[in-house]
Nucleic acid binder design. Sequence first.
DNA 1: CAAGGCTCCTGATAGC
DNA 2: TGCTATCAGGAGCCTT
Length: 289
Amino acid sequence: MPELPEVEVVRRGLANWVAGRTVADVQVLHPRAVRRQPAGAEDFAARLTGTTLGSAQRRGKYLWVPLDGTGAGFSLIGHLGMSGQLLVQDASVPDETYLRVRLRFEDGGRELRFVDQRTFGGLAVEEAEDGDPEGTPVSIAHIARDPLDPRFDDGAFAAALRARRTTVKRALLDQTLISGVGNIYADEALWRAKLHYDRPTATLTRPQAALLLGHAREVMTAALAVGGTSFDSLYVNVNGESGYFSLDLDAYGREHEPCRRCGTPIRRAAWMNRSSYFCPRCQRVPRSR
DNA sequence: CAAGGCTCCTGATAGC
DNA sequence: TGCTATCAGGAGCCTT
């Protein structure tokens, strides 16, 4: 699933391949892909057609591309959900089975295609938050900065984490506290920090909170370095998962395999209608709530 | 207001 | 063979 590193690879791809190009034509092939557009698919297409795309921005798992020529402050905003891909494709390439939106450009070059099997992702054209110099679209104003953002405040995060009355993995997945972290990198960061996913945040010491943040930042930075190599010419990313398969995961998806620290088999636990992978020896269950 | 749970969606896979 | 159940899970929305 695309988390911060995968989305950053896509952002770079957009910046390289579509920035500066003018939209000639927009096709919405599945209405759900633009469900965040209040006035619907036709309005989405109309707002995009004739605009020139700027350089893609990212916050957490959200992307946005500033639009010139529609008046100030509008952007094409996107989220990949679980299975979304943004592909830069030659027009001669047959339509993908789950092609949802197609953008053609006035230069007649490669198309931008939004492909999404499970339709949790989506696109919209949206105005910027009033007076925001970064042009952040209104619907993501509530999303926290991510740990790769130079303006992320480590101290404020540690304090906010410890002030929460919840458990640590829930907090890591809360995009209003820290953005960009999904199920995979949450499990990886917790493994590195030797913390159990159900550890109450209020019991973390300040150094533990700082270490956890450091591990989250490190694992996503390492994944980005790997994902970046798999991205070259035709596609914004190669396969929509952009190389996260090649990252050496220590916990996620490794049920029954030995912990790389202590050899104890990694365990998978049902957790919030999904899974948590952890080492039962390195990441001890908290004694009480 | 914070926290937690439900739901959207489709395909792969397991089990009977 | 063909059906049903389960799992994958981000985030908006609703309830408590």
